[in-house]
Design a binder for these strands. Structure first.
Ligand SMILES: [Mn+2]
Ligand SMILES: [Mn+2]
Ligand SMILES: [Zn+2]
Ligand SMILES: [Zn+2]
Lengths: 144, 144
DNA sequence: TTTGTTATTGCAAATTTTCGCATCAAGCGG
DNA sequence: CCGCTTGATGCGAAAATTTGCAATAACAAA
């Protein structure tokens, strides 16, 4: 069990929840895949390790981990994807033309977060924001 | 047919698509409901007007309108909701404690949009961004 | 107005996601 | 180490969403 996984285990128990082998597996899978993964992909990754594990459990576990904020759920061009919330908060620029997904460090979002807190007392979770638009490559050359 | 609906009709035909009664109805429904609506809610609103209209058509139509950027699709606490893209771009602050959805004018996002364009050539669609976090009311009083 | 092209719809089947409930087992107290 | 308590899982059914395809109808052209 890695350092991070140890941390996860403690965090789950600290909240009064149980650390089950199913939850460990899903967590491991997400770590191993190391990026955005759909529920189906997680299930396929995990299934060989524990064939009895039910698909409903994967859905519930992912939801559970999102609730605990150990996993971020995002909608990218209509697909629901999950990702471990790591040390590095980041956001994504998603091009609606070429569907490319760019990853950016969250630095530029802190201004916005600070402003939201100061102005509205709203403490924003900016650890995984999705912004859609058109990337540099996909803009029509003859931009007026 | 209202002014805005007229505009929609033209926009659909301008792109070479067809304006069908089903599409008009869905558009009308979204205008009438005037906020965020799930696919199911749209179907229920529209169904009495045209009982033959199939649920699959509602899903496809909403998708179609999103593609044309006449409708914004957003994920709010796990629910997929649709809304007419009006004149006023706005974003929402969604509290993960009380689930309340606040609506804000998009002014504060223009800085971010400008920066993304200048720095990365990315033209962001900031007409309907969802930001989750904890609202002022729901923060623990004893914040260290 | 009539006709032809083909985008769009309705329908049914396939997939995906959610839910209720009986059973199981993680973690605690003894 | 051994039971309790109750949160979590497996399972099957229900609900939601997507997809393939033949039939329909929008609308451009004649
Ligand atoms: Mn990410
Ligand atoms: Mn909105
Ligand atoms: Zn692009
Ligand atoms: Zn709140």
């Amino acid at each position: 069990m890695s350092h991070q996984e140890q941390h996860f285990a403690e965090k789950i128990r600290a909240q009064g929840y149980r650390l089950t082998p199913q939850r460990q597996l899903v967590l491991d899978a997400l770590c191993a895949m190391g990026g955005h993964a759909t529920a189906g992909e997680v299930f396929e990754q995990v299934s060989p390790q524990m064939p009895a594990l039910n698909q409903a459990t994967v859905y519930r576990t992912l939801e559970f981990l999102v609730e605990l904020r150990m996993v971020a759920r995002s909608d990218i061009t209509g697909q629901t994807v999950y990702e471990i919330v790591g040390e590095q908060p980041h956001y994504h620029l998603v091009c609606r033309r070429c569907e490319h997904v760019y990853e950016m460090a969250a630095d530029q979002l802190t201004d916005l977060a600070d402003w939201l807190l100061a102005e509205h007392g709203f403490r924003a979770d900016l650890d995984h924001l999705i912004i859609t638009g058109v990337c540099a490559h996909c803009q029509t050359p003859t931009t007026s």
